[in-house]
Amino acid sequence: MSDALLAVRNLSVQFTTYGQTNQVLKGVSLDVPARSQIALVGESGSGKTVTMRAIMGLLRTPPAKVTSGEIFYDGHDLLTMPTKERLKLRGTAMSMVFQDPMSSLNPVFTIADQMGTILKYADRRLGRSRGNRERMARVHEVLGQVRMRDPERVSRSYPIMLSGGMRQRVLIAMALLSEPKLLIADEPGTALDVTTQAQILKLLKDLVEERGLALLMITHNLGVVRETSNYVYVMNKGVVVEHRPTADLFEAPRDDYTRALIAAVPRLTGGTSFGKAGAAA
């Protein structure tokens, strides 16, 4: 066992559908020390989302089944602890920022309603309670933290009244409500325009540094990895193929898959030639 805030050890997960069993994770191990910025990168089907869902306890069992391994949070194994204990951690000590802001928000409730509900249940699980007014004060405070200029107005809005970037910031605010120590971000900003995505990434980075959080960034975009992390795990087909400090990975990738992945990224400076002629050169 390590002293990391989150430590995944030799995690294997299989899915059984229509009598067919697929080994989706094959012994994945990773460490997220406190106050670190870690990226988990892979293409579709690599197992990065399953890893995240296993950590958050969001795998539906069946069809999924954890066949071996441990997930330690602060030294406690999440997989063997009683459900009640685990629920106390989820959304409170460890929170998640989802990818698609439109489908993660309920269209028929205001932002204040949705954030208030989250806070209420988080408080209840932790055996705390606070009045309506205090709760709203906290909601406004957090909306301010994600750089909303007018938190009161945003909190009265329905999701459809907000732009994509603002919705994504609301999701980040939701994750911050009960002051987590670990933030897991699943492709944040992927659904947004480049300029908006750049803002969201910067906001996340600033927040993580300001508040001393640990960030686990799950993404398929190597550019995002380089901008937001200092240590990176590369996944392919359910296996971590390489893990290094982020700067080293781009300087001198060791694994063949990583090398191919980096080579496939078109460069802003040009020089990535497509086509047969390019491949030969």
Binding site: T195, G223, F250, R267, T269
Partner: peptide
């Protein structure tokens, strides 16, 4: 602004990105 917003993977690319503060808000 568009160029400054692109996430890149090398120092050379970073060097050619214009250095401007990112805008807070939409387009």
């Amino acid at each position: 602004l568009l160029l400054a917003s692109v996430p890149v993977i090398s120092a050379e690319e970073e060097a050619m990105r214009p250095k401007i503060p990112l805008i807070d808000g939409e387009i």
